[in-house]
Structure formats: C-alpha cells, structure tokens
Design a binder for these strands. Structure first.
Lengths: 165, 165
DNA sequence: GCCATATACTTGAAGTTTCAAGTGTCAGGA
DNA sequence: TCCTGACACTTGAAACTTCAAGTATATGGC
C-alpha cells in the first residue's frame, strides 16, 4: 500500500546513539592518523598503501584491476586514478592481460616492494598502538565479529552483481 | 640508546590481521554507503550532514567554528571549506562572535533545519540496517567500548594541545 | 557471421580534502 | 604602550574521489 520511507522512523536509542558517536569518532580519527603517518613516512595515503599490500600478497605480485578493486573495496574508477599515480611513482606497473584483451594487470615493481617493506614497520606500529595494544584478545574477537556482520549487511548475498554502485 | 623505529617490528598475529582486514572492509563499505545515500537523498556527503546535526543540537543552533571542528573531529581548514559550501546552499550562515573578534559562529538556518529533518529518517534507516538492526545489544555495548578505547589512544590526555596536527 | 548486451577499464570535470601559508585579534609582559 | 607569541580562522593550490560518459573487447543468441 505505502511506498514511502517509513511512516515513523525508528530513531536510535540512547545506547545506540552513543555507540554511533563513538564509532564515528574512532574511525575518523584513526583513518586520519594513518593517512598522516603514511603520507609522512611513505609518501602515500592509506588506501594506496593498502593496494600495494594486496599486490605484494598476490601470486606473482600482480592482479587484475577489477579483482584488486573488489579486494580493496573501492570503485574501479578510483583504482584507475590511484594506479596511474602509483605508476608515475614507479611503484606499480600495468600490463595487458593475456587471456582477456579488455583486461589489465597491476603489478608491484621491485621498487614498489622496497617502498612497502620500508613503510611496513612504521605502519604496523601505528595500527598496533592505536588498536591492538589497547584491546584485550576478547575485544579483538568481538571487533572482528561485529565488522563481519556489518560487512554482510553492506555487501549483499552474491556480492558480485551491483558491485559498489 | 637506540632511536630507531624499533629493531624488530612486532607484526600482527593471525587473529589481529583478520580483525584488521574485517575492520577496514566494514568501515570503508559503510562510509561509502552512507556517503552515497546522503548524496542522493540530501545532496551532501556524510561529513557535511554530521555538521548540520551538531549545529541542530547546539544551544541556539550555533557554534564556534573551532568547537564544531573538534566535535566533528576534522581540521579547521576542512571545516572552513565545508561551511563555505553549506553557506552557498543556504543551509548554514556565519556570524561574527560577539565576545571574540577573531571568532566566527556557524549557525544552522531554517532551511538547513528543514533539509536535515527531511534527510534524517532515511539516514537513520541506513545506519540501522547496516549496524544496529544486525548487532545484539551486547555487541552494541562492545562496539562502543572498543571505539572509546581507540579514541583515547588517538586523542592524547588533555586532547587540546596538538589538536589534530 | 552479426547483433545486442554485458564486461573491463579509462577519462575529464566537478567536488572534497590536505597542506602550507596568510590575515587579523588576543593576552601577557617589558 | 608596544612587543611577542599564541590563537581563530581563511585561502589557494595540489592531491584525491566521485560521477557520468566513453572506448574496446567479450559473450550469447539468431
């Protein structure tokens, strides 16, 4: 009968509102902190660093663009721009995908690997001191569980079709 | 004796690494989701919406720029640009602070209030369906606790001195 | 083979954020 | 009073992200 955004919105309870505020503060402060740390120590923002990490873990240090974007949870467009920048730095290179002429692989160069290895200790230290050195093992488990639930809600079933917009 | 970034970095354990991955995925997907939802339904990104919310809750719907920036956990510079944009939309106005000629108040206009009220239900619904409708009450408490701990680590003691860079 | 549609990726412009540098005001002491 | 340094905020340029549109290849009928 009705197709509207809900007759009466269910507002957040006090507990929920509080948790939401805490969440927003913590996540923005952390992202900010990591961005600054990496920009200072490695010359790139956090997301770009994440891309290098993904590539470093991939089979031959290379990955299809779309797969990389999916793993990093960013749009293809954003990845295109990011790789363009990383390529300019000489940390990543593109190569044509042999099996699909539409496709491109992004691959981590030796220099990119060096940059990554150089930046990693500082980055881990930052993540540690912000989170894992402060939480109990139970809390780490709780955090993982909570985030998994959230991800499920945001990334429907098959998670392939309306992929990110 | 040594002043280096740590002789041997303590890497993350498997559990920690897993939790970290979950965290990154969940937070980027959520921020993305909310940005799109609000951009579509209210014509502004999530952070800007947060600013309007803060103002709507302030005494006379107005607040000093610095205080607003602190509450929202963003830099003053970012706030300046954001308010400039919101002002152009007619949702916020600036006024000189009577007691301090250096200061400015940002204040929510009636139109800004209307936009906010119109957007709020959809936003709450989005937050709900992504988080609070999926977590148990215990998990909500755990999340708040975890985020509080993180925030403490990122926002030192007095939290006023080296305030955000 | 040919067509329609889907997929893989790129591009340019507009919007947002960061960074460094700038203006003007305040507060305390010489 | 006149400094000096701190504070409140702004500004412009560069970097990054988003959005919509574009190119090229693949795939599944017909």
């Amino acid at each position: 009968m009705s197709n509207e955004p809900a007759a009466e919105p269910r507002w957040l309870s006090d507990e929920e509102q509080f948790a939401w505020q805490c969440y927003l503060h913590a996540t923005t402060l952390l992202e900010d902190h990591l961005d600054r740390q990496l920009q200072r120590d490695a010359g790139m923002p956090h997301v770009y660093y994440g891309l290098l990490v993904q590539l470093s873990r991939a089979p031959r240090r290379r990955m299809r663009m779309t797969e990389l974007a999916q793993n990093a949870k960013i749009t293809r467009s954003r990845l295109s721009h990011a790789v363009a920048r990383l390529e300019k730095n000489g940390w990543v290179r593109r190569e044509n995908c042999p099996s699909d002429k539409r496709g491109q692989n992004a691959l981590l160069t030796d220099e990119g690997m060096r940059v990554l290895e150089k930046a990693a200790p500082g980055h881990v230290a930052a993540v540690r001191s912000a989170i894992f050195d402060r939480l109990s093992p139970e809390q780490v488990g709780q955090l993982a569980e909570i985030c998994q639930v959230m991800t499920e809600g945001l990334q429907p079933k098959g998670a392939d079709l309306p992929w990110l917009r």
